[in-house]
Design a protein around this nucleic acid. Structure first.
Length: 105
DNA sequence: GGTCTGACAGCGT
DNA sequence: CACGCTGCCAGAC
């Protein structure tokens, strides 16, 4: 079992399957603290920057932090820019309308 | 060791 | 319906 919350978050995010997305609240919840969504975003942001703008590797697996979105389904924020994040999500095969993720319908 | 920040979420106006 | 303020947690300085 992980030692720090950061490891948990990175681990969970790295478990997000392609073409899917997870909200900060979900990640935080799975990390053990449903109210730590603030910390989740903070961790990912810092981690991404510290990783030299590349996907951080946890347990030998990349951490697609761009798959983490807001609870409203909106893109939310992104170190490289919400627009870039949206573009990546589109490339993942997700459907985006008005800067918002459309999961099934 | 205390204090401020931050890629959010929820409620109120 | 859109915008604003507050509350929360863990991390970094």
């Amino acid at each position: 079992m992980p030692k720090s919350f950061t490891i948990k978050v990175l681990n969970i995010v790295s478990k997000i399957p392609p073409g899917k997305t997870a909200t900060y609240a979900e990640v935080a919840k799975k990390a053990g603290s449903p109210r730590a969504y603030r910390a989740v975003g903070n961790i990912l942001n810092r981690n991404f920057r510290e990783s030299r703008w590349q996907l951080p590797i946890i347990k030998g697996k990349p951490v697609p932090c761009h798959r983490v979105i807001k609870s409203d389904g909106s893109i939310g924020g992104y170190a490289k820019g919400s627009l870039a994040k949206e573009k990546i999500l589109l490339d993942e095969g997700l459907k985006i309308e008005k800067h918002k993720i459309i999961n099934s319908t």
